[in-house]
Design a protein around this nucleic acid. Structure first.
Lengths: 335, 335
DNA sequence: CTGAAAGCGCTTACAG
DNA sequence: CTGAAAGCGCTTACAG
């Protein structure tokens, strides 16, 4: 079943020692052009493929990285995954994609499993495990790149959004349109170093800087999907009828909020404007079409992987947080 | 960095040979309860974790499987992934998730890369590579489970939907509501062994059995996302104004079709009913809410992985196609 | 520029 | 029930 031509078969075929074959595979040490060619031909002829796992055993490198996301079905993360994966391909790395479902327990189990497989590094999006878990993992196993969680330390690096930028965009846009009572559909309440909190802080700051201080009761937390947005908006709009606009943490929640408006007989945007984040594909398909902040998630994925590979190559380097300043209002019907 | 406590360290600590340690790890051979316990304690004490890659080198098993899907962002596939991954966890397998973007070239590259990593098996959803590629892969590397492509052979097994069942449901539903001129938004035109074609055949058969023979010009092919459904429906409805209903290959396309209706000033469902497949989360959030056929994608993922593990354990067994008879009309507003 | 030796961390027969 | 030997397929110094 398995192909079992080894480096020795190639060596025999080419009439050299197996170390020489190893050298041409790895481009290491000087070898004469002729023997090099002879070996190359032999490899071709025998259809030889080096065994990665044998290589790994001696080099202690697997050329695999773990990529954890809380929900691959969420377009926000699936594009990050694509960006990351595309970059990794160019460098010959494979990625173990892990779907944590927002559960710290699953996240922890994945980390263990990845450690067993000796991945060279791990990228974690929206990590929710204890800080300590990450620190000891980075110490005992391999470097970590964190997305959506602002935490540094030895072997840990943060790559994220400059939340102030997008928040300013949204706040400015709505205030300019005359809104003063603006509700916020935030994600679940989490530790202050995680992205929900980072975004929410940035958002309240931005609103305040526009002279519109959001009342605490205008901010509501819920799960980051359409159903979560729907339920939260329903509650919010019933209890706070003075609101004329809603900012949702993402487009899925915004779509849920629009449904809530419909059920409450509120016209969007006339009675209540709704604005999201991400610009997912369906944003232009739903009714009313969704006004949102487009951000480059694909590029974010690339940046994370970029940082990951740097850390793998040079584990003892200094890796300060890298923030992407990005965002663009896509004006459609909902706000 | 890496933890380098090996089986020998444990052996020394427990005062036995390293082979004995190996035996307790693998539960192989008889060992006295006392030494077994002594070894277990030592492992615990030293926080020993066996190196999977060293194990792989000798056993030729990696306990990893490749899982290829054309688009992880599509809820249809992301739930299959979840089902598959959950089952694999229970058996200690890890999965390499690969996003092929419907491109046969990418699919082929992933397969090569997975072969290099010596995965124990590969599950491919909506495979688009040449038949030959699959056959030689199965022969040279490891067993394959195919989803959405009806192809068997040595080392290859097919797990899919019984398309006739769901198709019958949809056809019956629409015909009962009085529709006679029914358009179909199918996926891209592919080889007859692939799921688009299988579904389309089943659908036309079902319609015919209800006495409603679809005209060829009522069937249109396009990409399997919202934008594809939008463009295709726009064209279809303009050219075939007699249509009173549309069946879309999936919910995303259906949402696109509803948008097309709106742009053409057709009321849904009064002027044109729209029905999809899958029942994605957003189906109940969009306006009008989407009538659709709910199918258990999670279970499909499990069934695929189940078959995969069977094939890994027993590569020479006989594995006839396994078809899931599943589907349920979820009636909402659009049809 | 190229070969012989040792070793990566395990498992698999083979003895006893 | 347990240990000594060989080997999985590579790479890394070390000689020459």
């Amino acid at each position: 079943m398995k192909h079992n031509i080894t480096i020795r078969d190639v060596a025999r075929f080419a009439g050299v020692s197996h170390q020489t074959v190893s050298r041409v595979i790895n481009n290491k040490g000087e070898i004469s052009a002729t023997t090099r060619q002879r070996v190359l031909d032999a490899m071709q002829e025998l259809d030889y493929r080096p065994s990665r796992i044998a290589q790994s055993l001696t080099t202690r490198r697997t050329f695999t990285v773990g990529l954890l996301v809380p929900n691959i079905a969420n377009p926000f993360f699936s594009e990050i995954v694509e960006g990351a994966q595309n970059l990794s391909e160019n460098y010959g790395y494979n990625v173990f994609l892990c779907n944590t479902k927002w559960q710290p327990e699953k996240e922890e189990r994945f980390l263990e499993s990845l450690a067993d497989h000796h991945v060279d590094g791990v990228i974690i999006n929206s990590s929710r495990v204890d800080r300590e878990v990450l620190l000891t993992f980075a110490k005992q196993n391999c470097p970590i790149v964190l997305g959506g969680r602002d935490l540094g330390g030895p072997g840990i690096s943060h790559v994220g959004w400059d939340h102030a930028y997008g928040s300013q965009l949204v706040a400015g846009y709505l205030v300019k349109k005359g809104h003063r009572a603006i509700g916020v559909l935030s994600g679940p309440q989490t530790a202050p170093d995680m992205s929900n909190s980072l975004r929410l802080d940035a958002l309240t700051n931005a609103l305040e800087s526009c002279g519109v201080v959001p009342r605490p009761e205008w901010i509501v937390h819920s799960i980051l999907n359409a159903e979560g947005g729907h339920a939260a908006a329903l509650k919010l709009l019933q209890e706070q009828p003075e609101l004329t606009a809603i900012i949702a943490h993402n487009d899925l929640m915004a779509i849920g909020a629009i449904r809530a408006c419909r059920e409450l007989k509120l016209r969007v945007p006339e009675d209540c404007a709704v604005i999201g984040f991400n610009d997912i594909e369906l944003a232009s398909m739903v009714h009313p079409t969704l006004t949102t902040v487009r951000i480059n998630r694909y590029r974010m994925g690339q940046e994370m992987m970029q940082r990951m590979l740097e850390m793998i190559e040079k584990p003892d380097g200094d890796y300060p947080a890298k923030l992407l300043t990005d965002g663009e209002i896509i004006q459609r019907e909902s706000a």
